[in-house]
Amino acid sequence: MERAYAQAVLAMVENGKTPHEAVAALRKTLEIRGRLALLPRIGKAFERLVAKEAKKNTCTLTIARQKDAQKAVKEVEQVLAELKIGDTDLCETVDESLIGGWRLEGQGMLVDQSWKKALLNMYTRATS
């Protein structure tokens, strides 16, 4: 329920209303329907929605060591081009457990080029 109201507020803002106007319209509607108590939950749902929207064009690039960043970014750009994913914000993080290589996650896809994954696959195949 609160998610639907949050989506309505976001749509109003995207369609040109100021945030103040959108919230006022929401408050009025809730008052008429006797559902004003939903307001805090709608606020939280709106927060989650906006965070999700912000992440929409973001991919997380995880690397094992900071010094690998440059090489990884180059490879990732090539991968993104092959996947025909343009207009992407790359967010870099470091995770030592990857051992080496890189891992790209976001926009509903995962490309894992880490050494950890390669070694785990080898281990699974050799022991099964």
């Binding site: 991968v79 509903g108 896809m109 995962l110 490309v111 894992d112």
Partner: peptide, 17 residues
């Protein structure tokens, strides 16, 4: 394991997550 290492071919694969 030796066979696995010999057969290792670098390449990438995209997964739906």
């Amino acid at each position: 394991i030796i066979k696995e290492i010999e057969g290792y071919a670098p390449g990438w694969q995209s997964e739906h997550v």
